[in-house]
Every structure is written in structure tokens, then in C-alpha cells.
Design a protein around this nucleic acid. Structure first.
Lengths: 233, 233
DNA sequence: TAGATTGTTAATCGATTAACAATC
DNA sequence: TAGATTGTTAATCGATTAACAATC
């Protein structure tokens, strides 16, 4: 029996399984074992089987999973069985890139409008879309029943924009602004904070060990200079 | 005593603490308690204290943390105490946006070059940088001792690019391509896969409960139609 | 039937939270 | 000294891994 309350980590893996299935189907593969999915994805076979089992029993013992069947199940589970309309707020470099990217590359998502506050950018063309003033967002959200929104405005504007879209019915925000958004219960925010990603990567890019040892040494030096207690070890 | 083997989840939170400290210092705040940092960040005060304690004792009991002091410690811990030079490979919409973004917004990181395979894009100007042919990457990596690299090429080119930069000494890759990269031990990859983020967000954007129940119902219907066994409950 | 691989339960591991002594 | 808040140890929680019976 599928049980509810699926954890975030499980949900984040589902689109990866979907992508792999898309590739396999394109290559003509009809059946795939959890072992092979493990090779393709880097997750363990046990984890893959367990993830899928939260939603049902989609495989055949002794044989594996039918790729087309599993793909269809995953589409329904994730909610990609019909195209999701979305809007982009913030038509700067990143907003423009994401709009173009989604228009071309992503078969499951459709950007229906791009908004900006800056009057200079209104009317600017991004492929076939024209940047609209932010005031028109509520109307568009209503018209297309928008539930998902991408925010690519500067940090200081992000909360105002989030409040606005949530007020008109948006349930999920992909936030690229380097700011923590407060949203009511039931609204989901994923932070795609590129600065954070990059900085945490820098942590690993140089000899971690040495850097932290240097830090320890400094601390010790300070201590023996200024404190009454000695440090052992 | 600071212990080694810091987990990824801890490291990902450090840049967030850093950003909050930057804001606090700009506002003139001199001391901050873990409780207040909790309010600003959304993490619990216990977690913040524990995270920091992995690296040393930076606070003052009864008083909290000195913002300037803690910021400086964090810079050293993360490795941001000197500017990190980086390169961007792939000068499409996303690569261009990230290059501009980093050039302007990020004080700790500097994009020194942008590369592309496509001959048509070579020579294109992104602010003050000229897109260079990918063949020049090894020379630039050596010249600037590049350890961190952003990959924004199409999925099918990502692995080749990764192999190339790793071969010449890159230790950390921020990968925007929707592809799993294989890298040798000691090289770190962070995937910033916007499609995955967006799709997993869509999971939460519509009534999860209902969707999954519909799925269950389908499964049950199929079973009672085609199988020999009945399903109870 | 023998071989393979799922679905699921139990064991382990790791990360978060709670509690509190240390100490400013 | 009393009040506040850290640093750290112990308890809890959740997620991953291992094991194996079910079954194609």
C-alpha cells in the first residue's frame, strides 16, 4: 500500500528517474532493473526500489520495470501528465535565460508570461513573449490558473513579489533571489540560490584540511596570548 | 576541538550564515545570538551553534557572536578570504547570465574567462569578456590556477567538458547541464539542475493527496480487472 | 523448476533536536 | 551574583542500506 507523507529527498529524485527513463525509451530499451537504474543515476538500487514503492508496485519480480509504463506512472506522480503553465517574474539576465531555456528545452513546462517592475524593460521581447508590467501578474495568474512561479528579481524585491503571487493563488515558488522568503503554510519554496551553491563548492575546491588546520592554529595562538588557561593537545 | 569530516549539509549552510552576517554588519549590528540568527535564517539556534562548533568556539557565552569576527572566521572556513577565480564553459543564455551575474553581484568570485565550442559564438562580448574557443581552456586554467568551474553546455557535451577541465586541475564543478557527471575521487560536483528543481516543485503545486489517490485507484481497477487475486482494503 | 529481481521489513547510519553544564 | 547564551553531550528522529521472502 502506498503511504503518504513522502519526504522531500524522495520527491527530488523522481524527476531524475523520469529523465533516465526518457533517455532509455529514446534508445529503445523496454525493460530496466533497479540495478541498471542505479548505474544510470548513481543512487543505490535499494533506494530506487524503495522510492518507487512509496507510490505503488510498478515492477515485475524477476524482470524489472517496463520503461514506458514506469515513465507514465512517474509523470502522474510528479504531476507532469499535463503541461504546467508558469510565469517568470524578473526579466534580467537570469530571468531571460530561464524563459528561453524553458520555452525550448522543457517539454513539461510552459512559460506563459514574463514580468518586470522596471519600466525600461516593459515591452522587451524574449523570443515570442513580451515583458509585462508586474501589475498585470494577478490577471495572468487568474486567467491561466498559475500555480508555479519563478522569481528572478533582486533580493530586496523578492518578498514583495512572493506575497503578491501567493495572494493570487500561486502554490509553489522557485526562488533565485538570494533571500529567505516567508510564505504561508501550504505554499512551497525551493531556493535555487546560485551564490550559495558556488560558495559551498569553493569550500571543497582547495585543501579543506590545511585551511581548517590553519584556523585551529590561529585560535590556539590567540588563546595562549590572551587567556589564563593552557590548551592541551 | 574542531573535528574534521564536515557533512555536506553543514557546508551548504555556511554561506547562508555568511550572507546574514553581511547584512547585519551593513545594518550596524555588532553582536548576534544564535536565537536571532535562527530568526534570520530559518534554521534552529541549536543547529547553528552546532554547525559553528565544528570549526571552533567563536561566540561569547552570555553575549552571542561578534558579527565582524564571525564573518571573518566564516570567510576563512569556506575559503572566501581571497577572491576565487573561475571560468564558465558554455556561453548560451544561462552561461551569459551567470557570467554577468557573477561579474556584478558576487564579491568573492571572479569569472576570468568564458568558453564555447560553437565557432559562431567565439569573440562574442559578455560585458568585458570575450568568448574564447574551448581549446584555450587548458591554458587559462593553468595561468590562473583555476580550481572551480561552471559548466553550462548541453547535456551531451557536459561529460567531455568535465573530463577536460578535471584533467587540467579543476577540483570543483558547478554543473548546470541535465546530466550526471563522472569525475575522479577528490573532485566535487554540485548539480544545479533547474529542470529537476522545477519538476520536483510541480509535485507540490497541485493537490498531492488527490493525485496520489487517483493513482491508487487506477492501480486497484487494473488489478481487479486482470488479476486472479482480490485486493482487500 | 531455477534464476532473477521486486517489494518490504529490519538494521544501521547520520543528522537534527533537546538538554544542560560551562562561563561570560 | 543573577541572567543570558554558548559549546557539547545525549536522545531522537529520519533517511539510507541490508537482508530476504515473495513471485514473476
Amino acid at each position: 500500500m502506498p503511504s503518504r507523507n513522502i519526504s522531500k529527498s524522495v520527491v527530488k529524485r523522481l524527476p531524475i528517474y523520469l529523465r533516465i527513463l526518457d533517455q532509455l525509451i529514446r534508445r529503445g530499451v523496454e525493460m530496466i532493473s533497479s540495478k541498471e537504474l542505479s548505474n544510470e543515476s548513481g543512487f543505490t538500487a535499494e533506494q530506487i526500489r524503495k522510492d518507487l514503492a512509496y507510490f505503488g508496485a510498478f515492477g515485475t519480480r524477476g524482470a524489472g520495470y517496463n520503461t514506458v509504463f514506469l515513465r507514465e506512472k512517474l509523470l502522474k506522480i510528479i504531476g507532469l501528465d499535463s503541461i504546467t503553465d508558469t510565469i517568470v517574474i524578473g526579466s534580467g539576465n537570469l530571468g531571460t535565460a530561464l524563459t528561453r531555456y524553458n520555452l525550448t528545452k522543457n517539454p513539461y513546462v510552459n512559460v506563459v508570461a514574463v514580468f518586470d517592475e522596471n519600466p525600461e524593460l516593459i515591452g522587451k521581447k524574449i523570443d515570442s513573449l513580451e515583458v509585462m508590467p508586474i501589475e498585470k501578474a494577478p490577471g495572468i495568474i487568474k486567467k491561466y490558473d498559475i500555480k508555479v512561479c519563478l522569481i528572478t528579481v533582486p533580493a530586496n524585491a523578492a518578498q514583495v513579489v512572493a506575497d503578491l503571487v501567493v495572494k493570487h493563488g500561486v502554490k509553489a515558488i522557485l526562488n533565485f533571489a538570494p533571500a529567505k522568503l516567508s510564505v504561508p503554510e501550504g505554499v512551497h519554496v525551493h531556493n535555487a540560490d546560485l551564490t550559495i551553491e558556488l560558495q559551498s563548492l569553493i569550500y571543497y575546491s582547495s585543501a579543506e584540511e590545511e585551511r581548517l588546520e590553519r584556523l585551529d592554529k590561529e585560535a590556539k595562538d590567540n588563546k595562549s596570548r590572551s587567556s589564563k588557561s593552557f590548551s592541551y593537545d
